[in-house]
Design a protein around this nucleic acid. Structure first.
Lengths: 371, 371
DNA sequence: ACCCTGAACCGTAACGGTTCAGAAGGAGAT
DNA sequence: ATCTCCTTCTGAACCGTTACGGTTCAGGGT
């Protein structure tokens, strides 16, 4: 079944109109508004189009005229292989894709390498709006997006004046989790967190580094933890925080190893993501530590693997994050950018899910009165 | 940090040129060819642009002129939630995204619902090429894509004249797997497969249905299996094949249950995907069947969960599939479509990975001479 | 015979750029 | 003084479409 041979020059709506002896408008109508011309003429137009190998109106020219590209750009300044392996990121992508699919609009992954200074790809993307996810605060790509005169929604980022935002209340969620552990009696804690900045630092993280983290989410979770524990008298500068640049179960395990090797006294391991927590569980098992009897381990995100592992964690509706962002960026009543008056900030509900990986610590008291 | 207030009408390259008293060419050059004008003038242009809130050349207008959209369309006629949960599909997407990222080109998920007859989204997508994956043979969207005068690469689909294709040699791979089991001595087999057509059929699948499957990959795997086992004297019409519409571990388990409830004699369960096989493993465990002592179970794809489970399976490089497709569709030496002369068919290597889920069956002989 | 209406079709003007051949002007070589 | 070349900038053509505000014409009502 051969497709029509490509003639020297592709047929256009105009050449087709000329061939037919009708106006271009009529040809356009044949495709876009069938009710505007007689069925016979329409058939003749379409037949001739086929004969001439005219593939129908050019999408780009149409977009220029109608001012609609029919796609939303997704900015994800993260290693792609990384994003595609992170269940939370995938959830966001899925939610966004679903919202866009409902609207008959595409989702375009805008190429933007982590270190890359060249933001041309952002400028060249023919999209009707942007959704930004998992980008460090000072990323040049983010700035380039904000320059574009299209609606933009940011996920999990600090609120920027005039820019819509979708995300959970990380601080509140982390506080709840912290008080769950505090209530159980934990005071000797260790923290495993994801990368805090673009520079690699696999190991302990100073308090200054925590506070200056470029990744908003991680920064919030850590500073909130600090506040909660300091409120009950824990000196945060004595709390070990191990950072990992890569976000894999294996890195979670190695981080836990590093932590426990040098801080065997910790009774609870708080991880800023479920992936890291799953790794920590592996490492605990490897060491023969019983969870939660010997050590409590908590995660963050509520991915399905965590549920399977009955991990104590904070569930956040990642799919809804993507979907809300999509609905917001597509909302026709909110065309135009940077209007502070109509700025929307959607805060999603989170839920502390207490699994089987958290319990009271084996305290000194228990030892004294124990068998 | 306020972004410039939106004036009644967005500034354009022309209005900027007028303001500056220079030609549009000069403004265009200020952005695209800095060497074509003096640094002073360029600075003046860019400064004035900022002042007027001109966001730089419009991407769509540029695309119209340059005939480049800067994006590749991905056609995936599958429930999105489904695709995002299938590790094989994700691998393809990741590979494609990586190849495109290297070229500074975006990947656009073209919205195309499974049942949807409306192919307008395909016609409206402003892309420089298409990659088609996991689409039934007769999908209208696929036809719409082939109509478009842009390069197209199909993954895992039967070879279409004039259309580039990337995929493994499913037939050869399945034959190897079949002979592995045949060599072990299995003759009583059962098969679990994914959906064969758009209509739902959760249950046993007739031979006719297998041969008429709209999903090329599944069809090939089944017919190849049939040929291999018939070659050693097995009557395929006696081989039970259980089909599942959804592709989840749970469905794999339920399929295995249905199979073993009515066919307890089978010594090997051949699954056309790892996901199904993982479910079958769960079900075997639930029944107290030892794998592989009591029953052999095999998968297909070689996803990472399968590796962890030490499943006997056929590994195929899903990431490379996506990457090859991307490189092919982007290849500048192969512009233009449907040129049968330059048609490329890339066949990827597969590898039989023998894990710990396949072993010889407990044959009648063994029973006779056993303890 | 008149006016009016609706269906069918048309012409022009954008939409916002890029590109290419060449003009203007000055510097340096002969 | 003339020629050549280079740098810098310009003018006009072109990309392929759709929006907009018409015109034309057959037929219905009175």
């Amino acid at each position: 079944m051969g497709r029509p041979i490509r003639t020297r020059r592709q047929a256009t709506l105009a050449s087709l109109a000329a061939e037919l002896g009708v106006s271009r408008t009529t040809v356009s109508n044949a495709y876009n508004r069938p009710d505007q011309l007689s069925p016979e003429l329409r058939k003749r137009v379409l037949d001739t189009a086929r004969k001439l190998g005219y593939p129908g109106p050019d999408p780009v020219a149409r977009s220029l005229r109608t001012r609609k590209a029919g796609a939303i750009g997704l900015l994800l300044t993260e290693n792609l292989s990384y994003a595609f392996r992170d269940p939370a990121a995938l959830g966001v992508l899925e939610g966004l894709a679903l919202a866009c699919e409902d609207a008959g609009v595409g989702v375009q992954l805008v190429p933007a390498r982590p270190g890359e200074e060249d933001v041309a790809t952002v400028h060249r993307a023919g999209v009707d709006g942007f959704v930004v996810y998992s980008v460090p605060d000072d990323d040049p790509h983010l700035n380039a997006v904000l320059q574009r005169p299209v609606p933009t929604v940011i996920i999990d980022q600090p609120v920027l004046s005039g820019v819509d935002r979708v995300g959970p209340d990380d601080a509140a969620a982390m506080t709840t989790l912290a008080y769950h552990l505090i209530g159980l009696g934990h005071r000797e804690i260790g923290v495993l967190c994801m990368r805090l900045s673009r520079d690699r630092n696999d190991g302990f993280s100073s308090r200054e580094r925590q506070e200056k983290a470029h990744y908003h989410v991680q920064r919030t979770r850590l500073t909130t933890l600090a506040q909660s524990f300091e409120a009950v008298g824990v000196d945060w500068s004595t709390v070990p925080v191990v950072e990992r640049f890569e976000h894999t179960v294996e890195d979670g395990a190695s981080a836990a190893r590093q932590m426990l090797d040098s801080n065997p006294q910790v009774t609870a391991l708080i991880c800023t993501s479920d992936i890291l927590a799953l790794g920590a569980l592996d490492e605990a098992k490897r060491r023969g530590l019983r969870v939660p009897a010997d050590i409590s381990i908590t995660g963050f995100d509520g991915i399905s693997d965590a549920e399977r592992a009955e991990l104590t964690t904070v569930y956040q509706p990642v799919r809804d994050k993507g979907r809300s962002a999509g609905n917001l960026v597509l909302d026709p009543t909110r065309r135009g950018t940077g209007n502070p008056v109509t700025q929307q900030v959607i805060t999603l509900e989170t839920e502390l899910r207490i699994g089987k990986t958290s319990a009271p610590p084996r305290t000194a008291e228990q030892h004294w009165f124990g068998p």
